[in-house]
Deep mutational scan, measured.
Amino acid sequence: DWREIAKLAEEALKKQQPVTVNGQTFNDPNEIKKLLETAQKAI
């Protein structure tokens, strides 16, 4: 669910920690931002 992904990505950016989505881990803040943008577009 994109809403859940957006929430996870936002928290990861705030806490500056990696986030795992669908078994894929994102460590890079730039990648997390991209993930968040993608999720927000999909909602």
Rank of each mutant, 00 (worst) to 15 (best):
28 D>C: 04
18 P>A: 13
41 K>I: 13
33 K>E: 11
19 V>P: 01
9 A>N: 01
26 F>L: 13
20 T>P: 02
12 A>G: 10
34 K>E: 13
25 T>A: 10
31 E>A: 11
9 A>K: 00
35 L>K: 01
24 Q>V: 15
28 D>T: 08
6 A>N: 00
30 N>R: 12
39 A>S: 06
10 E>L: 09
25 T>D: 09
14 K>C: 11
12 A>R: 00
21 V>I: 15
20 T>W: 08
34 K>T: 13
40 Q>H: 11
21 V>D: 00
14 K>V: 14
27 N>K: 11
1 D>G: 10
27 N>A: 06
10 E>H: 04
13 L>Y: 02
38 T>E: 14
9 A>R: 00
4 E>P: 04
36 L>W: 09
36 L>K: 02
13 L>F: 03
43 I>P: 05
3 R>P: 15
28 D>H: 03
7 K>G: 09
38 T>L: 15
34 K>M: 11
12 A>E: 03
25 T>R: 09
30 N>M: 12
16 Q>K: 12
5 I>A: 05
13 L>S: 03
33 K>N: 09
17 Q>A: 10
29 P>E: 11
5 I>H: 01
23 G>T: 04
33 K>M: 11
42 A>I: 12
32 I>N: 02
30 N>L: 15
39 A>K: 02
43 I>F: 00
18 P>G: 12
32 I>K: 03
24 Q>H: 14
28 D>M: 00
18 P>Q: 09
16 Q>L: 09
36 L>Y: 07
27 N>W: 15
39 A>L: 07
17 Q>P: 06
22 N>D: 07
18 P>L: 05
29 P>R: 08
17 Q>H: 13
36 L>M: 09
10 E>V: 05
26 F>E: 06
24 Q>Y: 06
29 P>I: 11
35 L>A: 04
19 V>C: 09
33 K>T: 11
37 E>V: 05
37 E>M: 01
43 I>E: 07
28 D>Y: 08
21 V>P: 01
36 L>C: 03
5 I>V: 10
13 L>G: 03
8 L>Q: 09
18 P>N: 08
24 Q>G: 07
26 F>C: 07
1 D>L: 04
7 K>H: 12
30 N>H: 15
1 D>C: 04
11 E>D: 14
31 E>R: 02
25 T>V: 15
22 N>C: 12
2 W>V: 06
9 A>D: 01
19 V>L: 12
8 L>C: 08
40 Q>A: 10
3 R>K: 15
22 N>S: 09
34 K>G: 07
9 A>T: 07
16 Q>S: 13
1 D>Y: 11
37 E>S: 05
6 A>D: 02
13 L>Q: 05
12 A>C: 04
22 N>A: 10
41 K>E: 11
43 I>K: 05
42 A>H: 15
10 E>N: 06
13 L>H: 05
24 Q>F: 06
30 N>F: 14
11 E>M: 03
14 K>P: 02
1 D>S: 09
26 F>A: 04
14 K>A: 15
25 T>Y: 12
28 D>P: 07
37 E>D: 14
25 T>F: 12
2 W>Y: 08
39 A>M: 06
8 L>D: 06
31 E>Y: 08
31 E>I: 11
5 I>K: 01
40 Q>V: 13
5 I>D: 02
6 A>H: 08
13 L>E: 02
37 E>T: 07
17 Q>Y: 10
23 G>R: 03
8 L>M: 12
31 E>D: 15
19 V>Y: 00
11 E>V: 06
4 E>T: 08
38 T>A: 09
5 I>P: 01
36 L>I: 10
34 K>I: 14
32 I>H: 01
3 R>Y: 15
19 V>Q: 01
7 K>E: 09
41 K>A: 14
29 P>L: 14
6 A>K: 08
7 K>P: 00
36 L>Q: 04
29 P>Y: 13
5 I>Y: 00
5 I>L: 08
6 A>G: 06
10 E>Q: 07
13 L>T: 04
30 N>G: 14
37 E>C: 03
6 A>E: 10
16 Q>H: 14
39 A>Q: 03
16 Q>C: 11
43 I>T: 08
20 T>I: 14
20 T>G: 03
6 A>C: 10
27 N>R: 13
9 A>Y: 08
24 Q>T: 12
10 E>I: 08
34 K>P: 01
30 N>P: 07
3 R>W: 15
34 K>N: 12
2 W>L: 07
22 N>Y: 02
41 K>T: 11
18 P>E: 09
17 Q>K: 11
12 A>W: 00
39 A>V: 06
6 A>I: 12
10 E>M: 07
7 K>R: 15
4 E>D: 12
43 I>M: 06
2 W>P: 08
15 K>H: 13
23 G>P: 01
12 A>P: 00
29 P>A: 13
26 F>T: 07
22 N>L: 12
6 A>R: 08
32 I>M: 03
15 K>I: 10
30 N>E: 15
31 E>P: 01
42 A>E: 12
7 K>L: 12
40 Q>S: 11
42 A>T: 09
33 K>C: 09
17 Q>W: 13
25 T>M: 12
12 A>Y: 01
3 R>M: 14
28 D>V: 00
2 W>C: 08
17 Q>G: 13
33 K>P: 01
3 R>Q: 15
34 K>Q: 15
24 Q>K: 14
18 P>R: 07
22 N>K: 09
11 E>H: 06
39 A>C: 06
4 E>I: 03
39 A>G: 03
20 T>L: 09
43 I>W: 00
5 I>N: 02
14 K>L: 13
41 K>P: 03
15 K>G: 12
28 D>F: 03
26 F>V: 11
2 W>A: 07
7 K>N: 10
19 V>I: 14
13 L>C: 04
16 Q>R: 13
38 T>S: 12
7 K>F: 12
26 F>R: 04
42 A>P: 04
11 E>F: 00
23 G>S: 06
39 A>P: 01
7 K>I: 13
1 D>P: 03
35 L>M: 09
12 A>T: 00
27 N>G: 08
10 E>T: 09
17 Q>V: 13
42 A>L: 10
21 V>L: 10
31 E>V: 10
1 D>I: 04
14 K>N: 15
